[in-house]
Design a protein around this nucleic acid. Structure first.
Length: 344
DNA sequence: TCTGGGGTCCTAGGACCC
DNA sequence: TCTGGGGTCCTAGGACCC
């Protein structure tokens, strides 16, 4: 048994290039409305643009300053969703268990003698069906496969085993591990741990003290390359659905803030209604100027799909949030009820 | 680096019950 | 009266991912 991690190369940009092939080879950046003078960040950067130090997450204005010759395109979520569905449909043809983990990545649990051949076959299949290029990581577990696909980019195949793990990952900074972000990296740095090797050889009790009885040992396992092998083919249903909007100018008028909360509530209810499940909770999130984010949730009991009730509850959640300061971003999230409601 | 949009999971603490 | 121990549900907030 092997785990393959299939990861599309510069997915968002690649989808855009399918319909604008004349842009191939140029620095292309996708994000926001496509206007780099407005608030927004880069969601997808072509490899050419990345050479200028622009990556996903870079503010559009910064991207413009670093790479003034780049082509800026607006986000087109519907198009990426369509492309993602075609990719996953192609992967479903491969014999094995398919676990979709995002728009542009999936695990395949496969039973084969030669995972490399299969990986190349997967690449051919995806290319043929969708015109998109992907990288494939091979491992004995998900962590190995996930990390390997990063080294395989772009368009390659890489395998990581128990034997090669530490040689490959040992010298790298801890945030190269899947699940270690900037916060954890900083906490580890405080404890004098900066590389994967150092983390792997740290006394477990020390990690338990700093990160708790669950997270401590988990971090060490991560550094040792221990990960889950279970690839689940069970269909995943979304836990929640949300919409959010960052305003070009901070909102200061209280009535305007309430109108925006109601607008977002209507939008998210309309979008989430297609699912069929009733909603169990409404969460309103506000990002206040300059940048502190707070949220407040109110349960819907019993779970409901009533639009008016959702709107009212969103407004109540907003009022309980005490949003008296200038607002930069608002979001409304609906969490689905775990049971399908039979009396609707 | 003045910082989007859409998600997931975990933990801790309060309320409430027996 | 100065007060245990456990279970469950709920929410806030932290952290991470693409």
């Amino acid at each position: 048994m092997f785990v393959l991690h299939v990861d599309l190369d510069q997915f968002i940009v690649a989808v855009e290039l399918l319909r604008r092939p004349e842009l191939r080879g140029r620095p292309v950046l996708v994000g926001g409305t496509g206007d780099p003078t407005r608030r927004g960040v880069v969601a997808g950067a072509s490899y050419e643009a990345r050479r200028y130090g622009v990556h996903s997450g870079t503010p559009l204005r910064t991207a413009l300053a670093r790479c003034p010759d780049a082509l800026f395109l607006p986000l087109d979520m519907a198009e990426y969703r369509k492309a993602s569905e075609s990719v996953m449909a192609a992967l479903a043809e491969v014999s094995g268990t398919l676990e979709v983990v995002g728009w542009d990545e999936a695990f395949l649990g496969v039973d084969t003698e030669c995972p490399e051949d299969l990986a190349h076959e997967v690449q051919r299949l995806v290319q043929e069906r969708t015109g998109l290029s992907c990288s494939v990581g091979i491992g004995d577990n998900k962590l190995h496969a996930k990390v390997a696909s990063r080294f395989a980019k772009p368009g390659g195949v890489r395998q990581i085993t128990d034997e090669t793990w530490m040689a490959t990952m040992g010298p790298r900074p801890v945030d190269a591990l899947w699940g270690v972000g900037p916060r954890t990296a900083r906490s580890l740095a405080t404890a004098g741990i900066s590389t994967v090797e150092e983390l792997a050889s740290t006394d477990e009790s020390k990690l338990v003290q700093a990160f708790g009885s669950r997270r401590g040992p988990w971090l060490r396992d991560l550094a040792l390359g221990r990960g889950s092998t279970g690839v689940s083919g069970a269909p995943r249903s979304a836990v929640s659905h949300s919409v959010q909007e960052t305003y070009q100018q901070d909102l200061t008028d209280p009535d305007e803030k309430e109108r925006q909360v109601l607008r977002l509530a209507e939008r998210v209810t309309a979008e989430a209604s297609a699912d069929g499940r009733p909603f169990a909770r409404v969460t309103v999130t506000a990002r206040f100027a300059p940048f502190d984010t707070h949220d407040h949730a109110v349960g819907l009991r019993p779970p409901t799909r009533d639009h008016d009730l959702v709107a009212e509850t969103a407004l109540r959640a907003w009022r309980e949030l005490n949003g008296n300061r200038p607002v930069r971003m608002l979001a409304v999230r609906l969490t689905y009820s775990r049971q399908r409601d039979e009396h609707l």
